[in-house]
Amino acid sequence: MKTVTGFASATVGNVACGFDVLGFAITEPGDEVILTLHDEPRSGSPVTITSISGDGGALPLDPKKNTSSFVVLKFLEYIRSTKGIDFKGHIDLELKKHLPLSSGMGSSAASAAAALVAANELLGSPCSKMELVHFAIEGERVACGSAHADNAAPAMLGNFILIRSYHPLDLITIRPPKDLFCTLVHPHTEVKTSFARSVLPKSIPLSMAIQQWGNVGALVSGLLMEDYDLIGRALVDVVAEPKRAPLIPGFNEVKQAALDAGALGCSIAGSGPSVFAFSSSRATAETVGAAMQETFKLSKAELDSDMWVSPVCSQGARVISSTL
């Protein structure tokens, strides 16, 4: 048997002002997907989910409804029609979830990206990572009803990713400043992505849009110029954060605690409830994380939390073991 294990790490979408157009990957934690190739075909779907761990039984085993298997099915269709590879065997898929569900940490994107790099390796690497991004994005549609790329693209490609356009897809990779560290804190509560999207305004005043555009441009400039002060000034979201902050118990206090502890800036990770902060050193990022966790614990909800400190991941999704 041929077996490949893929890994993809957590991601932070939006990055404050960059709603649906900016995201980045961290180094850990992440999801693993193990694919085993069988030469003989089976009736029904060419992909079978043999086990899922770490999800508490929440994720579907139907290969058309699970993000990790759905993207592999789309990949198989693509290589058959575009690459001339007529796959006739069968793939068993094992998903190991290390990312919490509905956490704002790009859980579904990590599963999809890990599955895709494993499938690509298993079948001789017919696709580039940029090709695989398209399938990962479609996996987001299965997960939350919206095919957004701010988690899927950095999960696959690493670094910061700016989505200039969705139609056609135009992705710009931005490498992080060398001393930029992310503190990511996940409070033990849940915010459904679909609900977090439902609270957003359908339209915004032009003055608000101008402010948001200015911050996105400034954030990209700060990253490229390694201007940490500018990065901090630009981490302002006037569109989504004010509407989503009430969904996260103690968010405003946690954000202030992060800033008081030395963070450059702080905002909601994706749709929440996780919260991220940027710092210009690991030591500061650790101090910031401790302050954020303490403040969540002191909130009315008395929330426990998990915390990670990480540089931005430059690798993206990757194969971590193979028996080809």
Rank of each mutant, 00 (worst) to 15 (best):
7 F>T: 08
9 S>K: 03
14 N>W: 10
19 F>S: 02
37 L>Y: 04
42 R>I: 06
43 S>R: 11
46 P>D: 11
48 T>F: 14
49 I>G: 04
53 S>P: 01
54 G>R: 04
55 D>S: 13
59 L>A: 06
64 K>C: 00
67 T>Y: 09
68 S>C: 14
69 S>W: 05
72 V>S: 10
78 Y>G: 03
80 R>K: 14
88 K>Y: 04
95 L>Y: 07
97 K>P: 09
100 P>C: 09
101 L>F: 02
106 G>E: 01
108 S>F: 10
116 L>S: 09
120 N>I: 04
121 E>I: 09
125 S>L: 11
125 S>V: 11
125 S>R: 15
129 K>Q: 00
133 V>C: 13
134 H>G: 03
135 F>T: 04
145 G>F: 07
156 M>K: 06
160 F>T: 02
162 L>D: 07
167 H>Y: 09
173 T>M: 12
176 P>I: 03
178 K>S: 15
178 K>E: 06
191 V>S: 01
197 R>E: 02
198 S>L: 14
203 S>L: 12
207 S>Q: 11
216 V>S: 09
218 A>K: 15
222 G>S: 13
224 L>V: 10
225 M>V: 10
238 V>R: 05
244 R>N: 06
245 A>F: 08
256 Q>E: 10
265 G>K: 07
269 A>G: 02
269 A>W: 03
272 G>F: 03
277 A>K: 07
282 R>E: 07
290 A>E: 11
294 E>F: 08
296 F>V: 05
298 L>E: 10
304 D>L: 15
306 D>N: 11
312 V>Q: 14
313 C>R: 05
315 Q>L: 07
324 L>A: 07
